[in-house]
Amino acid sequence: MLINIVLNGKKITREIEPDLLLIDFVRKEGCFSVKRGCETSNCGLCTVFLNDKPVLSCSLLAARADGQQVTTLEGLQEEAAEFGAFIADQGAEQCGFCNPGFIMNALALFRENPEPGEEEIKEYLAGNLCRCSGYEGQLRGILNFLAWKKDKKRGVSL
């Protein structure tokens, strides 16, 4: 079947098998940041945006994205680097394999709720598993990033 997708801002038309999953579609298009960590929608590694909302691309048919906008970390490089630097400053990226999905979902959180509290952060990101970090370093990175954002907004120079 033929589908039209706006992938990271670029309109593409592709002939696909009807049972192709979105994760396999975007990886085939070179979006290798999207990772598979399980087959049961538990790990959050494959998170992408469908029309700016985070979804698990392992649980969505590519055909369902027909006519819609799909964004992966490849399309959010600036934001990823800006926020990711705070994770890196904690050493909390560790093996890095869960990072793209985690960062996608964190960016979705910041868009939805620019000043989330600790419990809101934990709850929103509960579906993003990480086996290396124990989550503490990720939390420190997020809180530091939010504080930096807040200061920046206030026009405070660091």
């Binding site: 290798f32 940041s33 970390l73 990823a80 680097a81 890196a88 990072n99």
Partner: peptide
């Protein structure tokens, strides 16, 4: 407490793993 040498590549999702 220096940043890991590969940190920025990892947080921006660069293609560096086996698959």
């Amino acid at each position: 407490p220096l940043r890991k040498k590969d940190a920025m590549q990892l947080v921006t999702g660069q293609p560096v793993y086996m698959d």
